[in-house]
């Protein structure tokens, strides 16, 4: 298997003064090149810490993280790793640097020494991908939260990363905005072959993943295909997560003694309800 990222027995704690707060403990995880992986967990479960370990933002206290077989602890390679693994955070305001969107998008590739012509092409492509072409010459201050987030994603895309990490990047968007971002992300994954790691509270966003990792108290408590994961209702509940509505309804009906399969989506649920009628 071709793994773009390999996490090997990694632990990381936050130490400030004489207090230590748990980050993540004994994480083992392989991320296959070109796959779509979702981390879910409640606030404080360690998913953002894990994400920040993947691009060398944090270096493990114990164990190691390999990106394209390069150890993230190798300080000389930090730059190379960060240009391969792009990260979009929850609040886009924290990620904007320029007063005109085009300049904001050019900031990253300019720093990498990309040629002017190519920067222009990349900006065209990135804005088109996030559906914000007409905003090229505007200021980010006047955008709504959802629009800003799409610009923040475009600002990472222009770096042409191999891995895109979205750390709760859809949390501030409206439902349509969330769908647009999800569609964009899935398109990048399926058409451009980009490896995508999505961190979320929304189980709905995990449905289409190749692999789902459920985090609780700094550990991966469950990992596998969405269906395998969602079946473990008790572990999901212990991890303080909520199942998608369709799954909840199918679980409730099963509890009442009806023999229907576990559903991940509304369509699946309805399909199984009308089947045999």
């Amino acid at each position: 298997m071709d793994n773009i990222i390999s996490v090997q027995n990694v632990s990381y704690d936050y130490v400030s003064g004489n207090t230590t707060n748990r980050g993540v403990s004994e994480i083992n995880l392989d991320i296959e090149r070109g796959s779509f992986v979702v981390f879910i967990g409640h606030n404080g479960s360690g998913k953002s810490t894990l994400a920040k370990l993947l691009n060398g933002f944090f270096v493990p206290d114990q164990g190691k993280v390999l990106v394209n077989d390069i150890d993230t602890a190798d300080e000389e390679k930090t730059f190379e790793i960060r240009s391969k693994v792009g990260m979009v955070f929850q609040n886009p305001d924290n990620q904007m640097v320029a007063s005109i969107i085009e300049d904001d998008l050019a900031f990253g590739p300019e720093n990498l020494g990309v040629k002017r012509e190519e920067i222009k092409e990349r900006i065209d492509w990135a804005l088109k991908t996030v559906n914000m072409e007409e905003y090229r010459n505007r200021t980010p201050n006047r955008l709504s939260g959802g629009q800003k987030q799409r610009i923040a994603i475009a600002a990472i895309l222009v770096m042409k990363p191999e891995v895109l990490i979205l750390d709760e990047s859809t949390a501030m968007l409206d439902p349509k905005g969330r769908d647009e971002v999800m569609d964009t992300v899935l398109k990048l994954n399926s058409e451009e072959g980009m490896t995508v790691i999505l961190i979320t509270h929304y189980m709905e966003e995990a449905i289409r993943a190749d692999k789902v990792a459920v985090m609780n108290e700094g550990r991966i408590v469950l990992a596998g295909k969405p269906k395998e994961v969602f079946e473990k209702v008790d572990i999901i509940r212990d991890a303080k997560l909520e199942l998608p509505v369709a799954t909840k309804v199918s679980v409730e009906l099963r509890k009442l003694g009806y023999d229907i399969p576990l559903a991940l989506t509304e369509e699946e649920l309805v399909e199984s309800l009308v089947l045999g009628n």
């Binding site: 003694g257 309800l273 009308v274 009628n277």
Partner: peptide, 28 residues
């Protein structure tokens, strides 16, 4: 072609409405 009562804005109401619709009896 399956109509449920309109009072189903949460999971419990929806589950009850599905049961009440009788759609699942046959299958069971």
């Amino acid at each position: 072609g399956v109509s449920l009562s309109s009072d189903c804005l949460n999971v419990n109401e929806l589950t009850e409405a599905i049961v009440a619709s009788g759609i699942l009896k046959k299958r069971e």
